[in-house]
Design a binder for these strands. Structure first.
Length: 463
RNA sequence: UCCCCGAUAGCUCAAUCGGUAGAGCGGAUGGCUGUUAACCAUUAGGUUAUAGGUUCAAGUCCUGUUCGGGGAGCCA
């Protein structure tokens, strides 16, 4: 007999087949003289399956009464309605086979552990309520993202992970090299000779697939990427990891307002979809981590996002009675405290800020007619801050060249990017969303190290 | 990288003014007829992160280092 997923058994309105087999791990075991209660988890859903085992089972004394947290078992028995209050169904076991015992030093207990401790056992932490729920939510979110774009006819583009251009412009990069670190080949003037390296030049891990995404959008109209990205920045915060996943749609024939509409419906769709597919997991996060979770989700799903230009936002901040640690003025980038004031106190919902001064944004953003601002947009959400950043791209070759000059960027290195503006250039826009940032937002988890299975941060790359 | 705070049993935490390192959970052993982080009893478990210093005496005071937390910068 093929074994059943606990999720499928518990979801039934009525019991269809009473003879069942489940396989999983003991979450808790409560033994008494003549029988035991075992809560079994197979990770398919938040809930465990309660198994009742009586002393009549032949291996009761030898095996079953010795089961404890972490043991793996296969249980055959009758699925029945449970007289207990905490679960709908339970299994009256007719046979329990122990698949794997646990050593005495099994670190997980049936009580709350600190996240800091769980990080030191990241290979086991998926068995806890919180991290298990996170992994299921992550999966549901990833599926929703693909569904959203696929339903709209977007093409999934696999942007390269290794890039030879050192100029993607989004931060410090990790070098990819096969040269002997102790004794690298040198050029005549004493520098490392990367022409002898694997790719014949310097290579790095990607920090963004956007530029490659633009090339595909100018061939296929609408594309998205969803892949790993890497930043070698020495940031030690609850919102940064060195390896994270990013979603970057790019749309031809699309201006900033189309971009905003897409970003907003994108966030609404994923939030709704995760809520529908993981209600128990989100319920748990609401109960244990963030009491405002459902309120925030309703906020994002039902309410239209607020939209303000950067100039208007600065105006609001200047006119507010609040005193900020960092004073704000037109032309300076908004600090965390300013973003939080806008999302949490002024609008109390997600806010899209647009049309930033060109000095504080990337070279590829479309220059407005005022000559001072660019068509960039940031989607800010309460607490988490920026989850999406995007822009209409500069599609006029002369303007783009001038901007690159101003920012001292090598036009030679970007030759293929500039080509897009020479051969059938079209207005196009796109945005990027950090996947783990979204997981933080939708679960209420506070540290990004708990939003990814195996976090990589400065000084730490275990497992 | 900067500022602030912290590190005591496997885990979560106590330890008064500088004066004998404790509890709960987990583990082991035993008990218990429907439990829900079950309950009851017994028991083992410590170089107080690390290296120095002050003192008759340091978990406690001082300095360096490592790691962690909160905030900031950079950003997603």
């Amino acid at each position: 007999m093929k074994h059943s997923r606990i999720k499928d058994l518990l979801q039934q309105e009525t019991i269809k087949e009473s003879q069942v087999n489940i396989k999983g791990w003991v979450k808790t075991a409560r033994h008494s003289k003549d029988f035991s209660f075992l809560d079994i988890s197979d990770g398919s859903c938040f809930s465990d399956m309660q198994v009742v085992a009586s002393q009549n089972l032949e291996n009761y004394k030898t095996d079953i009464s010795r089961l404890k947290t972490g043991c793996s078992v296969s249980v055959h028995g009758n699925l029945v309605e449970s007289p207990g209050k905490e679960q709908k169904y339970e299994i009256q076991a007719t046979q329990i086979d122990v698949l794997g015992w646990v050593d005495e030093d099994y670190p997980l207990q049936k009580k709350r552990h600190s996240f800091e401790f769980l990080r030191t056992i990241a290979h086991l932490r998926g068995r806890t309520n919180t991290l298990g729920a996170m992994l299921r939510v992550r999966n549901a979110a990833a599926r929703a993202i693909h569904n959203f774009f696929q339903e709209k006819g977007f093409i999934y583009l696999h942007a390269p992970i290794i890039t030879a251009s050192d100029c993607e412009g989004a931060g410090q990069m990790f070098r990819v090299s096969v040269l002997d670190a102790k004794n690298p080949p040198l050029t005549e003037n004493g520098n490392v000779d990367f022409s002898k390296d694997f790719f014949g030049k310097q290579a790095f891990l990607t920090v963004s697939g956007q530029l490659e995404g633009e090339t595909a959008a100018l061939a296929l109209s609408n594309i998205y990427t969803f892949g790993p990205t890497f930043r070698a920045e020495n940031s030690n915060t609850a919102r940064h990891v060195a390896e994270f996943w990013m979603i970057e749609p790019e749309m031809a024939f699309c201006d900033l307002s189309g971009n905003m509409e897409m970003a907003e419906s994108f966030l609404k769709y994923i939030a709704k979809s995760v809520w529908q597919s993981c209600p128990d997991d989100l319920q748990f996060f609401q109960k244990m981590i963030n009491p405002d979770l459902f309120k925030n989700l309703e906020n994002i799903i039902d309410q239209p996002f607020a939209r303000v230009t950067y100039t208007e936002a600065i105006d609001i901040l200047l006119k507010s009675q609040k005193t900020f640690e960092y004073p704000i003025a037109w032309g300076s980038d908004m600090q965390s405290e300013h973003e939080r004031y806008l999302t949490e106190e002024v609008f109390k919902k997600p806010v899209i800020v647009t049309d930033y001064p060109k000095e504080i944004k990337a070279f590829y953003m479309y220059l407005n007619d005022d000559g001072k601002t660019v068509r960039g947009m940031d989607v800010l959400v309460p607490k988490t801050g920026e989850v999406i950043g995007g822009s209409q791209r500069e599609d006029r070759i002369d303007v783009l060249r001038k901007r690159m000059e101003e920012m001292h960027l090598s036009q030679e290195a970007y030759w293929w990017y500039l080509d897009l503006r020479r051969y059938g250039s079209v207005p196009h826009s796109g945005f990027g969303m950090g996947f783990e940032r979204f997981i933080l937002f939708i679960t209420g988890i506070q540290n990004i190290r708990e939003a990814i299975p195996f976090p990589r941060v400065p000084g730490y790359a275990e497992f």
